[in-house]
Design a protein around this nucleic acid. Sequence first.
DNA 1: CGAAGCTAACTTTTT
DNA 2: GTTAGCTTCG
Length: 744
Amino acid sequence: MTNHIVAGLNESQRRAVEAIDGPVLALAGPGSGKTRVLTHRIANLVGNHDVVPERILAVTFTNKAAREMRTRMRDLLGAGVADRIDIGTFHSLAARWLRRDGTKIGLPNSWLIYDDDDQQRLIRRITKELKLPEKPFTPRNVLAVISNAKNELIDVATYTASARSPEVRMYALCYARYEELLQIAGAVDFDDLLLRTIDLFRTDALAFYHSRYRYILVDEYQDTNRAQYEMVKALAKGAGNIFVVGDDDQSIYGWRGADVRNIRRFDADFPGAQVIILAENYRSSQMILDVAQALIDASPRRVFRKELTAQTSGGDAVTWREYSDQNDEAQRVCDAIEHIVVSGSGRFSDCAIMYRTNAQSRAFEEALARRRIPYVLVGGMRFYERREIKDMLAWLRLMADPHDDVSLMRALEFPSSGVGAASQDHVNSWVAANHCSWYTGLTQCMNDPQAIPMLKGAPRQRLVQFTTRLQRLLNQTNLVSLLDVFDAILIETLFSAALNEEYGETDGESRMENVTELRRVAGEYLLLPMNEQLPRFLEEIALVSDVDRLNTSDNHVVCITMHQAKGLEYDNVFLVGLEDDLLPHIRTHQDPSQVEEERRILYVGITRARKRLALSRANRRLNRGQYVNTISSRFLKDIPSKLLSNTAMGSRVGARTMATPNPTYQGWGTAAAFQANKAVTPPPPIVLEVGDVVRHQRFGEGVVLAAKVVDDDLEVVVKFADEAAGEKRLIASFARLERIVPNH
DNA sequence: CGAAGCTAACTTTTT
DNA sequence: GTTAGCTTCG
């Protein structure tokens, strides 16, 4: 039956949609309509083959991809049907299954997810406890060792048994203790979500999942790690209808355990697999694809070769420019963006600046802010990683699980409970010796003054006070919603006042606004049954990423790493910092396979562009306070120079000098005509004179000592009342100064 | 015990 | 140019 579901698909897409039985591998080049294939395949199963929606499982790598798929499914099938399909990331699905069946493999009834920060705190505690030297045993290193072991499905016993060198034996000790502490806290880390699910699939519970999921679809299969691969294999053993989409040329997560071999050996793992290649590109111009193709064809070992073809030939030339330094690069990119907007060929939101490392974003942020171009920065400090947010979450988590040690120690520090390092050490050695949680230890200590002999007098009193406060919260019976719990904590801890105390009034208030924003998010969970509200809220927060929060409808330039940009697309893409040492990153130079991964990162970046692509580098770059000369990325050699133009995008604007401002574009005023979003609208230009009294978000009040116009903006020197802040040179619009007393 | 001030190290990418 | 962790002082 041919109908609207397959209408409009090309030959390969259609085959991928209609091959519903058995194993199928779809090799989907960038922009080849991968999501379309996934959604239409599901629509085909439900609409044309009467598959019950509940029998379908779709796995993605990001929440964003999951949400997008859900939205498209609703358009195709209607919400009533679409919402019955299980769609999610590996991690969120695993969490869902473990909530349901975790007790079968020994998980407690309720458990928490430890994020990266929690893990590091735990590790720091362990390395201190074991008195390990700082040198190789940084939290980051130790965590990487443990995570790699977990990714390879190596448990503590196996790891310990295979430890030869003294150093590895130390890591083994950390691993063992780490696992014990997680267990005591009733917590699982990201890797555990997958590992424990594999454990679950080794029990007879697997039969349930086999009967439940008859059709399995996996997106971005090239990014699966060992654990995810095992999960897929276990599930696919049921009905055998396993459909995976991926592209080995876009495999860029090897560093966190993803194994390209999973996709390359798919037909060996699943005998009789159909392999379908999707190479027709519906996104980019042929000019852009030629560059991408040249780059990837230069890769020495490729297994599946694809020849990307565009819908139309030609397009704007891809540009390559070398700038003097990172600020120059940022300025010229801004020129080009302004040109695009002013000439009417695009909006700010059609432009994206992509770089290899987050550290590169600073120069662009400053240049964009200075010109009042609205932008968003993806990555860097995430909302849920802010101090005040983590502090609030620590208390919320304690409400769900008082044995969560990491949160308890955090709650102990904010609001300050007056419990110092010495007392903490006493408690810590006691709970370590008794293999119990802090909460258990503190409760004992409260009931029996002699329980922890080292603790007495005032320090013990303070701990008792803290425990009393915590128990008062835990025992409140009149809390009937998540918001009640939230507010009870705010009241009991005097959270807002504590923020002002800790950060000063101005900063404290703005941090409280973030907490209020968190409260607003919590408010979205009120429709769930009371006992599910808090756990679900916490789980979602642990698994949400920055890209997930990216709002594509707002009119702003996007600054993003090439990694995070995977799955996104823009009319105009600026790939910056194409320098050896940055791309390929210096830490990959000695390993050819890692350098090849860097090549694929660039490939991913290039193929994000629809219409225009600008490549650039800075001849010298400020590294940590020092300028370093750079050389072009070695990957440039693989792109024939005839494919590159050295006329920059928007070069007319680029030619302007600081002395003669572009008459057609006058900062934000003109840009506002292009319907910028309110949320990102920079403040109107502020005019300051010497002698004005101003307020800064962080530094507080100060007086303007000097002011001069630099590059269309005002640069001021402000002497702040706060001794610590002293005198600062600031860009007026970037610093968001507020004039409180004009100088008349 | 906590605040302030100093040093060192550091920056790859993140579910 | 930042941040985290350590030392020192009050």
